[in-house]
Amino acid sequence: MTINVKLKIWRQKNAQTKGKFETYVMENINIHLSFLELLDELNEKLIKNDEIPISFSHDCREGICGTCGLFINGRAHGHLRGVTTCQLHMQMFKDGETIVIEPWRARAFPVIKDLVVDRSALDKIIQAGGYMSANVGGAADADAIFITKGIADNAFAAAKCIGCGACVATCKNASAMLFTAAKVSHLAILPQGQCERMRRVRKMVDEMDRNSFGNCTNTYACEMDCPKNISIAHIARMNREYLRSVLT
């Protein structure tokens, strides 16, 4: 089965120039194509027409690397819950539909080109403290610490974050609270994370604030568009961690 779609895609040469929407019509699209394969096909056509193809970020194409991220019809990673852009397939779109495709928009994520944005601010938050300072060599036997299944599962649920930035893109305040909280929470829950617990949350939140992210006003949009369904309960935990850290 095939469908026809109209794509309105944001084109922008670089951070210095202004961007605008361009319209492309794609006909007889196999519904088994993935959404990014549709863009591949469009790009092949553009190259053959001597035009510059559309830049968009992608890599693993199986929903785990966190590279891809498009704002599709007003939603980060499109309208389906719990998926990344690369996991969208054309069967999820209607024949004749107009699909609006934009880059992540946030002050902390300047546009590099077309749909590609610079998310290095997320790296910086991790660099500030998103780890346990455990040099190689001195680790005790892995089973020396008992960690009950519930705690391990909870930590895992937070650690699943793929760092795509959908939470920032979809938040009206462009806040990185869910991203930061997921890491704070993952490490604060585990017994190994206790030594640096107080310092870690302060350093990470301070770095987040330095990078022009907005604040959280509890709209829950981030949780809604997170491809890994990370719960905003982690934000609540981070707030508690932060308060405890600055007050004690």
């Binding site: 001195g138 680790a139 892995a142 009950t148």
Partner: peptide, 21 residues
């Protein structure tokens, strides 16, 4: 040693109800 190192870093490996890996 790899498993030990990863656990020290906070890698949340699957555990059983008793808390062991």
């Amino acid at each position: 040693g790899i498993i030990d190192q990863c656990v020290a870093q906070g890698v949340p490996f699957a555990r059983d109800y008793g808390g062991l890996l």
